[in-house]
Amino acid sequence: MADLDLATFFLALLAGAIRVGTPFIFVSLGECLTEKSGRINLGLEGILVSGAMAGYAVAYLSGSAWTGVLAAGGTGLLLGLLHGAICSLPRVNDIAVGIALMVLGTGLAFFLGKNFIQPQAPSLVAIGLGDWSDDERVRSALSINVLFFIGVALAFALHWGLRSTRWGLMLRLVGDHAESARALGYRPVLVRIAATAAGGFLAGIGGAYLSLYYPGSWNEGLSSGQGIMAVALVIFARWQPMRCLWAALLFGAAGAIGPALQSVGISTGYYLFAAAPYALTLAVMFITCRPNQTLSGAPGELSLTR
């Protein structure tokens, strides 16, 4: 530890947070949107994996990484639509459907993705913000994918949209009190289906980031549960898009800190490091939750908090 170069270490950690956190941004913003409408989609893991596969396959077949990203979003949209539609039927539990969808989505992705493990698809290119520097490490840390900036912009847009636009208010109304929304002439079921589909779209893009940029290849072990974690992340972020952004970066940093510490020679307890974000979320929830009181910011219609 004597030769621990703090500046390099923190730079690496920041870069890692952005690299690892970007898919979290998309998936959590998607889930945030869905949950704001009063639904929960636990199937995002399946959507993420399907998106990763579809994105990679289409990018390979079309030769364009961005077409792949769109295809990933489209796949997510369809699966989200499926979830939204089934959950709109009476007596159907959204958590259970989510878990069934997780199985179905991963199954489809693994089955259809078999032929795309070996070929090399074009990957998304990064913007070299650090090209001014002579240090390769700085250049690498600051070479950031466009999707990250899109994710950040999206967080701002959602933050503003949910607060200050007509559809944002409607969405929140549907999520908080479907009766009142119905009284005003809106159709909560359609709003929820749309919100779930949009959430699926974003989760699909999160998957495309994994397969087309970082780590940048399609295989069956690609996701390590980012889709499921996003659900926890949204609660951690109290259903606020801006906090989702920070939380995603925090989770990204937590994923990056284990390897970063080992690279400077601290290599004990790596399993515990890996579980740190989960324990942290749990601790924060434990401290901030109050009995007999729903979480502040929680949509009133959400099955999770009722």
């Binding site: 659900v231 926890a232 324990a279 979320t281 939750c289 009181q293």
Partner: peptide, 10 residues
């Protein structure tokens, strides 16, 4: 009042 679904997952 900690949600059991997310709590159990974590």
């Amino acid at each position: 009042g900690l949600n059991e679904t997310i709590g159990s997952l974590l």
